[in-house]
Amino acid sequence: MLTMVQAAVRRELGDAGEFAVSLPHRHRIPLGLMMLAQGWITQSQLQKALKAQRENGRGRIGEWLKSECGVEPEQIMRGVSMQWGCPVLTTEGFSPESMALVVPKIFVQKLGMLPLRTAGSRILYLGFSERLDASAAFATEQMSGLKVESVVVDADQFETARGKLLTCDGVDIKLETVDDKDAMAAKITAVLEQKRPVRSKLVRLHEDYWLRMWLESGAVGRTDSLLPGTGEDVMDHVFSIR
């Protein structure tokens, strides 16, 4: 068991090493420049929004374009969609009770992600309000067994939906911090030997390592995915290395 867990940990560490720092990708054209190039805003509007952002030391440029320049939210979403090359979706059909079971709430809070809904039994739409996170999407795809499509959601709709999700019961979770990868492998091995799950998976989300265990065969949904139908007989452990 320990040998298998060590192999899984090495797989998730990849070539980065255990102390690598995850940095955001900065290869996208800035939203303001994108909208300016498309003729959706003027140079003076962009300068006004950037000035407000600098003076306040917070907020995204889209928020300042809306509040300071009166740019419509739909136009901001259109720009973000073009910036990231992904569609814009609404929260229509969002079920906070079922989506709360998809990923641990700690990731919903830390990474600005929102499981939005599934299409049939094959696609899971993962929503973001402005900046997409490819690592979060890939990890969710690996854990769920579904194809994950990243989408942009209006910021107000996103926050309302995320607030509802955070009030719902999710999968029981335990957070643990370990000294190094060997200590993490030993902890995971001990947990698996104690719980004896019928299925388990380990994936990495930036600096965290997410272990999900299905304790009974009925915990896996009736579809081809690994999304739990309820929070019963499923358990999450999230490990971080000091």
Rank of each mutant, 00 (worst) to 15 (best):
A8L: 11
L146A: 10
K147P: 00
A16W: 15
L89R: 14
I106S: 14
V191I: 14
F138W: 11
F107K: 12
A190V: 01
T167W: 03
Q45D: 10
L50W: 05
K66M: 14
L175N: 09
V220F: 00
T177D: 04
G70T: 02
A119K: 15
L124W: 08
F19L: 06
M34Q: 11
S240E: 11
F19N: 11
G62L: 01
Q43P: 08
K51I: 01
R58Q: 14
L165S: 09
T177K: 06
G62D: 04
A186D: 09
V220H: 02
E63I: 06
A52S: 08
P104M: 00
D233E: 08
V203S: 10
C69L: 03
L36H: 08
P115Q: 12
P30A: 12
A37N: 15
L166R: 10
Q194P: 00
E18Q: 09
W40H: 14
A155Q: 10
G112H: 09
E74K: 14
M235T: 12
S81E: 05
R11Q: 15
G127R: 02
D154L: 00
D233W: 05
K48R: 14
S44K: 12
Q75I: 15
R60K: 13
R11K: 11
I123Q: 14
V151Y: 03
L165W: 04
I41S: 03
P104I: 01
T167N: 11
M184R: 06
I41D: 05
S200P: 03
W214A: 09
E176A: 10
D133C: 13
D154K: 10
V71C: 02
E72V: 12
F239D: 04
L101M: 14
V5P: 01
E176P: 05
V203F: 00
R117Y: 05
S129I: 00
G59D: 09
K66W: 01
T140E: 07
F158S: 02
E193P: 00
G218C: 10
P197F: 08
C86N: 09
Q83R: 14
P197T: 10
F128Y: 10
A100Q: 03
E92R: 11
Q142N: 12
G229S: 15
A37E: 15
G145E: 04
V71T: 07
I106V: 14
S200M: 06
M1D: 02
V178N: 07
L23V: 09
Q6C: 01
L114E: 03
L23M: 11
T223F: 02
A7L: 06
D156G: 03
E149G: 01
F19R: 13
L31W: 06
T189G: 11
G231W: 02
S135P: 00
A134W: 09
L211Y: 04
C69P: 04
F138P: 00
M99Y: 00
E176G: 02
G221D: 11
L192P: 05
Q38D: 13
E97L: 08
K147L: 13
W210E: 02
W84R: 12
C69T: 05
S22I: 03
M34H: 12
I106C: 10
A52R: 06
T118P: 06
T160D: 09
G127Q: 01
P30M: 13
V80A: 10
Q194R: 12
A155G: 03
